[in-house]
């Protein structure tokens, strides 16, 4: 069991090992956020338990278009900062099309964080295999601090959901999750995700979720058959 640390707790006297969630002052490493203390031989970090989504380069996020401009789109990514998707970063853009013919206000997209400047101006890109405009399926919103649980250890939870329900899932690091597939199965997945979000302790959660899906699947089966 890993220890819960609070801001200001002394973690190490060696500043070289300082990682995420820590800060250095006078050559000592302290925790700066509430979280779980994670220590390896070369690195120490604090895994956050709470907090808003703060983008980092390379994150896959699900966003909603909020504004259309001549040179791109302003996208809400459920964070303190709005992101910008330039037209040059959208492969769907063609010379004879205007930006609002490709993405309109209210459209959802899957994109990657390309760059963040020191003023926290976030630039997105859709030039990636998994990026696309979302025109079908469903979006589920959860607390971004719970995203690692929905993914599971080495993606075990996602594999379970995909395998058991035969659906497509993309988990945005910002806590928005896109699900696509058979409508009833998507509903079960949505309930399962909310269940994962709510469970405070994850001991054996994967098994419990598997059980939950089995039960819901048989319920649905009875109703239709």
């Amino acid at each position: 069991m890993r220890k819960v640390v609070l801001p200001g707790d002394l973690l190490s006297t060696n500043p070289k090992v300082a990682g995420y969630g820590t800060y250095i002052e006078n050559g000592k490493v302290y925790a700066k956020i509430l979280g779980l203390f994670d220590q390896t031989e070369t690195h120490i970090k604090v895994i956050p338990l709470k907090g808003r989504y703060i983008p980092t380069v390379g994150d896959v996020v699900v966003g909603i278009v909020r504004e259309v401009a001549a040179n791109g789109w302003l996208v809400d990514i459920h964070s303190p900062y709005q992101a910008f998707l330039p037209i040059t970063e959208n492969p769907e853009v063609k010379l004879n099309k205007k930006p609002n013919e490709i993405l309109e206000i209210g459209d959802a997209i899957i994109a990657k964080v390309l760059n963040i400047d020191p003023k926290m101006k976030v630039t997105l890109s859709m030039k990636d295999r998994m990026c696309r405009a979302i025109r079908f399926g469903r979006i589920v919103a959860i607390n971004p601090a719970r995203v690692p649980r929905v993914i599971g250890k080495k993606g075990s939870m996602i594999k379970l959901l995909k395998g058991e329900l035969d659906i497509q899932i993309v988990v945005g690091q910002n806590g928005l999750i896109w699900i696509n597939g058979d409508r009833r199965k998507v509903s079960i997945a949505e309930e399962a995700i909310y269940l994962i979000e709510e469970e405070a302790h994850t001991e054996g959660l994967t098994d419990r979720v598997a059980e939950f899906i089995e039960r819901r699947k048989s319920d649905v089966g009875e109703q239709t058959g």
């Binding site: 338990l49 998994m130 690692p148 649980r149 993914i151 080495k154 996602i158 988990v171 302790h201 994850t202």
Partner: peptide
């Protein structure tokens, strides 16, 4: 409040 919270076994950053 947080001693119950255990995301201990998780360190997955891999995406779907």
């Amino acid at each position: 409040r947080y001693i119950l919270e255990e995301i201990d076994e998780l360190s997955g950053d891999e995406n779907a």
